[in-house]
Amino acid sequence: MNEIVTDQNRRIHPHKFTMWVAIGSILMMFAGLTSAYIVKRSQVNWLMIEIPIIFWFSTLTILSSSVTIHLSLKSLKEKRMVEYRRWMVVTAVLGVLFIISQIIGFVQFGKQDIRIVGAGSNASYSFLFAISSLHGLHVLGGVIALLVIAIRAVSISKRNYSTLPLEITATYWHFVDALWIYLFIFFNWMK
């Protein structure tokens, strides 16, 4: 890979660029889903969905996790390794909290006798569930990436100060954050 960087003196690392293209690709998936939602919404038998209150909490967690991953990256660049690790762990925990709060939201639906799936379910709630859980899977992917980086960071065999993996993960993390904000506004607006 050194060939890539020295020979060609690029402004953006190819792996980072790949991540941007991947983001475009993921966006297309959610564009497909949300436009399907819009089409479906204009048809008969659509229920006004109630967004669980706890989704506000999930929004807050994922927003703050964007801040913490930024702090983590900043610490790494300034070689403050203890802080870097601390913020990374906080980010991962916030990510997990986000997923848990979403699950709680959907469990609450069950208590209110709203069916998400199965007989008697309505497509409006199924959509909310399908889109949110697909987004949740993407958050989970980010958490796993953070864990991998964290494990690599503490391994003693290789001392690695490369910021690239964390930079790429941070880009991705900000993206899933922004994606959630989009979805959250979308769901509230397009009930």
């Binding site: 959610f30 799936v117 309505n122 497509a123």
Partner: peptide, 16 residues
Amino acid sequence: SGAVLLLFDRNLGTSF
């Protein structure tokens, strides 16, 4: 996304 929704319809009883 279409395939995922179809899997939902097939296995989770949704009505997309």
